[in-house]
């Protein structure tokens, strides 16, 4: 089963030009680990605002590529952080797993 909505992915490819998609994927995959680092340390220090911003970016980027599950997980965390709630249980780990699946599929599509 695909972790990406391939219609969204194809639309993105059509809109930006087929030769550009690799560059876009790289921009996303280069940035995502930083976002996870930011969320992990913000969770330690209780910095809900930094956490929220990172989750917001991940949500937005995931949706751009059609990674709907990842985007939904990020959106949930963004919402919790907005309410200053960093009692997120294992959600960050679950999201990291989802990201790994997205990452490998995107690398294959480059």
């Amino acid at each position: 089963m695909s972790t990406l909505d391939l219609n969204t992915f194809q639309e993105l490819k059509d809109a930006t030009g087929a030769d550009y998609i690799a560059e876009l994927i790289d921009a996303f995959l280069d940035d995502a680990p930083n976002l996870f680092t930011q969320m992990n340390s913000a969770r330690m220090t209780g910095d809900a605002e930094t956490f929220r911003r990172a989750a917001h970016s991940l949500k937005s980027n995931a949706a751009t590529f059609g990674a709907m599950e990842l985007s939904a997980l990020a959106k949930e965390l963004e919402g919790m952080a907005r309410e200053n709630n960093l009692e997120i249980g294992t959600r960050l780990e679950v999201m990291q797993d989802a990201y790994r699946r997205v990452e490998s599929q995107l690398r294959a599509l480059k």
Partner: peptide, 15 residues
């Protein structure tokens, strides 16, 4: 402020 957004929007508009 989001690089991916900037890239997607500017590239789409250039297209």
């Amino acid at each position: 402020d989001n690089k991916v957004n900037r890239m997607v929007l500017s590239r789409s508009l250039e297209q």
